[in-house]
Simulated assay, not measured.
Amino acid sequence: MEFNVAVYSRCVLTSRDKRTREYRGGLLSYDRAKRDIQSWIREAPGRDCYFTTMFDLYALPNDFPSYAEAMRLTDPYERTRIIETAISEDVNDHRFIPYVQLHEFEALIFADPQQLDWEYLEHAEPIERLKAIVAETINPELINDGPTTAPSKRILAEIPEYDKVTAGVHVAAKIGLDTIRQKCSHFNEWVTELEKL
């Protein structure tokens, strides 16, 4: 605990059934995300509690604040900044720091796709092809967000059994925060802002 902080994470509440069972993940609308974020903030009113998000820009619901304005821009970094600023203003709590991942979580895996071999040992050739994609783009955060070319779609095209929920997290841990921060500038800006708290 280099920064002497405790971290707790959870997925956004997306629905409840009649028996009060909660379902999280699979973000469907900004309104649901906002309600869950505000509930989360109310649960921990302390001045030393801070809150953040990690929403993928790819397939982000179009009802997010300033979404239409952001999508008219060509610079993906500016798109995320506009949406993050709009979410911050809408939630309106100084302890809340929104973050939108360019273009999705799997961009972080492209910081070092070789580490996929920890989960997928017999996929040397597909992993080499994924490494070639990074060599072409240099910055993994800029791998585009088309329906067949988004980072997760590219991984799935090479490794169909790729599991976003479990393998993605394990591979990112193997890559390590230092490498991800070095290769992914927007992610690094977010982590740096959190460290300053």
Results as ranks from 00 to 15, higher is better:
residue 44 A to P: 00
residue 16 R to D: 01
residue 149 T to F: 04
residue 7 V to K: 04
residue 122 E to R: 12
residue 2 E to S: 14
residue 195 E to T: 07
residue 119 E to S: 15
residue 90 D to I: 04
residue 136 E to A: 03
residue 48 D to F: 10
residue 156 L to T: 07
residue 127 I to N: 07
residue 166 T to C: 03
residue 130 L to G: 10
residue 54 M to E: 13
residue 87 I to R: 02
residue 64 F to K: 11
residue 187 F to C: 05
residue 150 A to S: 15
residue 131 K to T: 11
residue 10 R to M: 14
residue 91 V to W: 03
residue 56 D to S: 06
residue 60 L to A: 08
residue 39 S to I: 02
residue 40 W to S: 11
residue 126 P to Y: 09
residue 160 P to N: 01
residue 101 Q to P: 04
residue 81 R to D: 00
residue 121 L to D: 11
residue 147 P to S: 11
residue 33 A to H: 10
residue 189 E to A: 09
residue 75 D to S: 14
residue 14 T to I: 09
residue 130 L to W: 07
residue 47 R to L: 04
residue 102 L to I: 07
residue 195 E to H: 12
residue 85 T to E: 10
residue 190 W to L: 02
residue 105 F to E: 05
residue 85 T to M: 09
residue 105 F to V: 05
residue 173 A to L: 13
residue 188 N to K: 03
residue 124 A to H: 03
residue 153 K to P: 00
residue 102 L to A: 06
residue 61 P to L: 02
residue 67 Y to R: 06
residue 115 Q to A: 12
residue 168 G to H: 07
residue 14 T to A: 11
residue 179 T to D: 06
residue 14 T to D: 08
residue 59 A to P: 00
residue 26 G to H: 14
residue 111 A to F: 08
residue 104 E to G: 04
residue 131 K to L: 06
residue 15 S to P: 04
residue 82 I to R: 13
residue 21 R to C: 06
residue 58 Y to H: 06
residue 42 R to K: 09
residue 57 L to C: 08
residue 19 R to M: 08
residue 59 A to L: 01
residue 134 V to C: 10
residue 50 Y to D: 04
residue 37 I to Q: 10
residue 62 N to H: 14
residue 89 E to L: 15
residue 187 F to N: 06
residue 195 E to L: 12
residue 52 T to V: 14
residue 71 M to T: 00
residue 54 M to P: 07
residue 17 D to V: 12
residue 146 G to P: 08
residue 99 Y to N: 14
residue 91 V to C: 00
residue 58 Y to N: 07
residue 50 Y to T: 11
residue 6 A to M: 03
residue 163 D to F: 12
residue 111 A to H: 09
residue 146 G to Q: 04
residue 33 A to I: 08
residue 162 Y to C: 10
residue 179 T to W: 02
residue 10 R to F: 09
residue 196 K to S: 15
residue 130 L to T: 08
residue 83 I to H: 03
residue 48 D to H: 06
residue 155 I to R: 05
residue 9 S to W: 15
residue 167 A to C: 03
residue 186 H to C: 02
residue 15 S to L: 04
residue 98 P to F: 07
residue 107 A to I: 01
residue 89 E to Q: 14
residue 27 L to C: 13
residue 135 A to G: 07
residue 145 D to P: 01
residue 134 V to D: 13
residue 172 A to Y: 11
residue 75 D to H: 12
residue 81 R to Y: 03
residue 86 A to W: 06
residue 32 R to L: 11
residue 97 I to Q: 05
residue 47 R to G: 02
residue 13 L to E: 13
residue 37 I to Y: 13
residue 171 V to A: 14
residue 146 G to R: 08
residue 22 E to C: 11
residue 93 D to M: 01
residue 122 E to V: 06
residue 54 M to T: 14
residue 94 H to W: 11
